[in-house]
């Protein structure tokens, strides 16, 4: 964000969000981080957000880092890795999991 403006377009914001998530997952190592990001997008992003990031990957591939692009591709294929470390909490059980409090 520059000093001149705080307004991001939705597409800019989605690109920013995807990379922000990726930065926070990076310590997992490339392979796990890609899987975890794909899983995160699948589970928390609304269909129109998913469609927009996929469109960006297709039409403006330079805007996505290799790991984010790989995660978006993986999400688009509908094959998020189940039970990756970062997303085990999303398994369904009686006592529950959520992203909010």
């Amino acid at each position: 964000m520059s000093d001149d403006t705080s307004v991001m377009s939705t597409r800019d914001r989605l690109v920013y969000m995807a990379h922000q998530i990726a930065r926070n997952l990076a310590t997992m190592g490339e392979e796990k981080a890609v899987a975890a990001l794909a899983e995160h997008l699948t589970r928390f992003w609304d269909p129109r957000m998913k469609a927009q990031i996929v469109a960006i990957a297709l039409n403006q591939p330079d805007r996505l880092s290799p790991s984010v692009a790989a995660a978006v591709a993986r999400m688009a294929q509908g094959k998020p890795a189940p039970d990756v470390d970062a997303t085990q909490f999303n398994a369904v059980d009686e006592t529950g999991h959520c992203d909010a409090g």
Partner: peptide, 23 residues
């Protein structure tokens, strides 16, 4: 969605990851 989006949503995420419950 609800106002927890702007207050304790990270609590749910973080405690779910580590302990398994969002409370």
């Amino acid at each position: 969605d609800t106002c927890a989006r702007v207050c304790h949503s990270p609590t749910g995420y973080g405690l779910s990851q580590t302990f398994g419950t969002s409370a």
